[in-house]
Amino acid sequence: MTLTILFAASDANWAEYAAPLRAAIAAKGLPATLTREAAPEQVDYIIYAPSSALQDFAPYTRCKAVLSLWAGVERIVGNASLTQPLCRMVDPGLTEGMVEWVVGHTLRHHLGMDRHIVNPGHVWDPTCPPIARERPVTMLGMGELGTACARALAALNFPVTGWSRTPKQIPGIPCLHGDTGLDQALSTAQIVVTLLPRTPETENTLNARTLSLLPKGAVILNPGRGPLIDDDALLAALDAGQIGHATLDVFRVEPLPQDHPFWSHPRVTVTPHIAADTRASSASHVIAENIRRGEAGEAFLHRVDRARGY
């Protein structure tokens, strides 16, 4: 029997994904038709972007899984009509890109590169930074991305502490959890990286209270989700010198409005949501493997826990 796979995403996504998806599905030996239009009752799998016009999943009674092209699922996980299994995207290419962004900006702030790159007064300042083992880093969020970034930083000798809402055991990375663990993880962190999922429980994880726990002058890197940080609290902490710098890749509203104070703040770096992106070539293999698993009766990869929201 030929499978019907509905691609429910934008025209731009279709242009990027159609060829690699067909190749990846064929490589798994799956007889399938990849299409942008199909009768709902005939669809076996939906490849999905949460920005899609498809928002009512109830008619897709034969659909065995909804396979998201996005790593974040906050825009779909609360959809009451979605009763099919939902799988988020964990793309090796996206992970590599995130690791590179996090390591690059960690090293930038650790080495104090900005004062040499931007030095209009030609100031000769021979002050040397500490070595990596003297610069504690805390990783908020120890999922696939957080763990990969934590391991990369630890390989460079940064002392990395991981924190997550629930207990995690990552070889070589001490991990804390819960409210008490968060306070402990922040209390020594000179650099904090936020890679938590966006859920009601994680919103404003960094707020006036938690920012005050950090050592004075600590640096914030946020390539995770904009709502993880209370914007007003962060600006106040920057103005007070409690936070030395914030490099932000994600925001509550994107593109970041031109009048937002982050743009003009001297201790804020804005990057335009480029820390990591799904690569069609590698993501297509993840999707094809999940379709193969569905047909073989095996557990799906990266299935979302609807109760936890990720």
Results as ranks from 00 to 15, higher is better:
residue 239 D to H: 02
residue 246 A to F: 09
residue 233 A to H: 05
residue 244 G to T: 07
residue 239 D to A: 07
residue 254 E to H: 03
residue 231 D to S: 15
residue 251 F to Y: 05
residue 249 D to P: 05
residue 248 L to H: 04
residue 258 Q to C: 03
residue 258 Q to I: 07
residue 254 E to S: 02
residue 233 A to R: 03
residue 247 T to N: 11
residue 250 V to R: 04
residue 242 Q to C: 06
residue 250 V to Q: 02
residue 251 F to P: 00
residue 247 T to R: 06
residue 230 D to M: 08
residue 258 Q to H: 11
residue 246 A to E: 10
residue 237 A to L: 09
residue 236 A to I: 08
residue 239 D to P: 02
residue 251 F to V: 01
residue 252 R to Y: 07
residue 241 G to Q: 05
residue 250 V to T: 15
residue 243 I to L: 15
residue 244 G to S: 03
residue 232 D to N: 14
residue 234 L to A: 10
residue 229 I to D: 04
residue 239 D to Y: 05
residue 233 A to Y: 04
residue 247 T to I: 13
residue 252 R to G: 15
residue 238 L to D: 05
residue 252 R to C: 13
residue 234 L to I: 10
residue 233 A to W: 00
residue 254 E to N: 08
residue 250 V to K: 01
residue 258 Q to P: 00
residue 250 V to H: 00
residue 230 D to E: 14
residue 232 D to P: 04
residue 231 D to E: 15
residue 247 T to F: 07
residue 256 L to T: 06
residue 240 A to W: 04
residue 252 R to A: 14
residue 240 A to Y: 07
residue 259 D to N: 15
residue 235 L to P: 07
residue 238 L to H: 00
residue 252 R to P: 08
residue 234 L to D: 10
residue 243 I to R: 00
residue 259 D to F: 07
residue 260 H to E: 12
residue 246 A to Q: 13
residue 240 A to C: 09
residue 243 I to H: 01
residue 234 L to S: 12
residue 243 I to Y: 00
residue 234 L to V: 11
residue 246 A to C: 14
residue 228 L to I: 12
residue 251 F to S: 04
residue 232 D to V: 14
residue 254 E to C: 05
residue 253 V to S: 11
residue 243 I to V: 15
residue 260 H to G: 09
residue 240 A to H: 02
